[in-house]
């Protein structure tokens, strides 16, 4: 164990950094995608509703590993070989970010849809009856209330996404799982190396969920 830590600890910490970088990039775009498709699902527009539903269903219905291979290998192949345009290259970070953003975005869209729908219809009606537009009512009245109910689910989704970065080891992104595999390849110390990787994930996720809980408490203070 000591040998793994002293010999490869720094390397694995760097890999953990890459994991966090990938997770942050993915989550950032996932929030945008989730908000767009979540809103498209609740507005009174059949076309938008259908597009949002299809998006969520497709992403949820495809395993993330398939999505990762498809984006990393499939899309450039389509572009370069089938369409013959050529010149397209995706880095593992770009492909990984797209993959995480789409995957997490679909779940976020569902969380946001459910959160908005959990706010009593009367809130929107009262805002509209005062002359506020749909957008103003959404922004000032409905979304602030929806977000409070969404926070636990969003934190949960963040944690899942952080762990899902490990799947992206398959497209060669040098995150923690990929790096640990290499460490095991060199040292054959599976128990120590995977144990250390596990502990690293665990520490980050516990820190994340604890600080999220603290933030949630602060948000709720003085309201009820």
């Amino acid at each position: 164990m000591v040998q793994i830590i002293t010999g490869f600890g720094l390397m694995m910490l760097k890999a953990l950094g890459q994991t966090l970088l990938l997770a942050l990039c993915g989550l950032f775009f996932a929030c945008i995608i989730g908000l767009i498709f979540g809103l498209m699902n609740v507005i009174k527009n059949k076309v938008c509703n259908i597009i949002a539903t299809i998006f969520v269903d497709v992403i949820r219905g495809v395993p993330m590993i398939v999505l990762a291979y498809f984006i990393f290998f499939g899309i450039p192949y389509l572009w370069n070989t089938i369409l013959g345009i050529g010149g397209m290259q995706l880095t593992a970070l770009t492909a990984g970010t797209i993959c995480l953003a789409l995957n997490c975005g679909a779940y976020m869209a569902e969380i946001i849809r459910a959160g908005i729908q959990s706010v009593d219809k009367g809130q929107m009606e009262a805002a509209r009856s005062l002359g506020l537009t749909y957008g103003q009512s959404m922004r000032k009245v409905v979304l602030p209330q929806a977000i409070r109910t969404m926070i636990p689910s969003i934190i949960n989704q963040f944690i899942i996404t952080l762990k899902d970065t490990s799947i992206l080891s398959v497209i060669g992104f040098p995150e923690l799982v990929n790096t640990t595999k290499n460490v095991v390849g060199v040292t054959f110390k599976s128990f120590q190396a995977w144990g250390l990787a596990g502990v690293m994930y665990l520490v980050v996720i516990i820190l994340l969920s604890r600080s999220a809980k603290a933030m949630e408490r602060r948000l709720n203070r003085g309201r009820e």
């Binding site: 009593d120 809130q123 805002a127 009856s129 005062l130 000032k140 009245v141």
Partner: peptide
Amino acid sequence: VGMVFQHFNLFNN
């Protein structure tokens, strides 16, 4: 045109 609702609908936030 002001409206008053059965369930008040004050903005909870």
